[in-house]
């Protein structure tokens, strides 16, 4: 029998507000008062500093970033520096992940595979690169393997937080303000930069849910944040 999950799409929302909601859902999941949930969102431009951040990977001062309309925030996920902005779909699975899979490392690899399968739906060949997390594609503009999906998760009381971003059509110039995830010799790309007419984020979200359910043997139904 398939396990029931919820999905909630917060739409365009500030990172801080969305994180507050994410923590609330996480707490309810831990208490058993809410189902495991896939939480989707899109943020106005913000750079987040994970627990493993290094100052050298932030190339501009907070003042310079503010002048460019980019906020800055320290967050509780693993990983280094990340950028989020319009045109990027963020998914945060809030899950008792061991109900579906054994081992956090395996969970991360399965999440990456979900994104690879979503990209495949759009005719893009996503792949992993040994030693690097996230999902990569060949960027036709440069001919190099570039990151299209970043990943960073936290696990508290056995329930996951944070997750993945998928670059559908973000402002790639904003990524030049950081060394994303601390990886100096790799570029960032998007579905649009790879030559696709960028699909609506809601369509990519639906593809993600389909691929997630197929990967984890779940059945995910729509929920609204007001019901949590």
């Amino acid at each position: 029998m398939k396990k029931d999950l919820n999905w909630i799409d917060l739409g365009l929302i500030s990172y801080e507000q969305a994180f507050e909601l994410q923590e609330r859902i996480h707490q309810k999941c831990v208490e058993g008062a809410a189902k495991d949930t896939l939480l989707f969102q899109e943020n106005p431009a913000i750079i987040t500093l994970g627990r493993g951040s290094h100052d050298k990977n932030l190339l501009y001062s907070p003042g310079e970033l503010a002048a460019m309309g980019i906020n800055l925030s320290a967050v509780s996920r693993g990983g280094d520096v990340s950028y989020h902005g319009r045109g990027q779909l963020i998914v945060s699975p809030i899950l008792h992940f061991e109900r579906y899979i054994k081992g956090a490392h395996h969970y991360v690899r399965c999440l990456e595979q979900v994104v690879i399968n979503v990209l495949g739906h759009y005719g893009l060949s996503g792949k992993r690169i040994k030693g690097l997390s996230g999902v990569w594609v060949n960027d036709p503009r440069t001919g190099t393997e570039s990151k299209i999906s970043a990943l960073g998760i936290a696990i508290s009381h056995g329930v996951t937080l944070h997750g993945m971003s998928i670059n559908v059509n973000p402002n790639l110039a904003h990524f030049a303000t950081i060394i994303p995830c601390g990886i100096e010799d790799r570029d960032v790309t998007s579905m649009a930069a790879c030559g696709l007419i960028p699909p609506p984020l809601a369509e990519v979200r639906d593809q993600f849910i389909t691929a997630f359910d197929a990967m984890f043997g779940t059945q995910t139904a729509k929920q609204t944040i007001n019901k949590i």
Binding site: G50, R51, G52, S76, R77, G78, G79, A104, H105, V108, S133, L151, G152, I153, A154, I155, S156, H157
Partner: peptide, 18 residues
């Protein structure tokens, strides 16, 4: 019991120890 008392991390995963 159950309080988060330490944080460990891999390259991409932060794990709270209870």
């Amino acid at each position: 019991k159950g309080d988060n008392i330490a944080e460990a991390a891999t390259d991409k995963i932060s794990i709270y120890v209870e």
